[in-house]
Amino acid sequence: MSGKLYVSRSRSVAARKLGDEMLIMSGRDSTLFTLDEVATILWEAADGGNPLDQIVDEKICREFDVERGEAMQDAEALVRGLADHGILQISNEPFGAPDVPGLVER
């Protein structure tokens, strides 16, 4: 165990960016979710290869005026919530190839 948390977008979902939000349709039960701007950044960075703390450092803390500990706590709660809905996978080890090819932005 590395102690780090790796996150990867689930293969079963459908997703598209709408404005600054991400629309995600669960493959499990067709439930529709939306992610706000910050959650969308995390989602887009969830390629399975980079640990969550690195994503938070590089994508959140550099872009937003937020304290790192707080950002990390929020991010972890978010990814665990998304994992509960089956739209994100989490692991203490890096995933292989990304589950979903890079999302398309308008």
Binding site: A14, R16, K17, L18, L23, V104, E105, R106
Partner: peptide, 10 residues
């Protein structure tokens, strides 16, 4: 399909 994805079709 590439174009539809870029246009925002979900």
């Amino acid at each position: 399909l590439d174009e539809l994805a870029s246009a925002g079709v979900l």
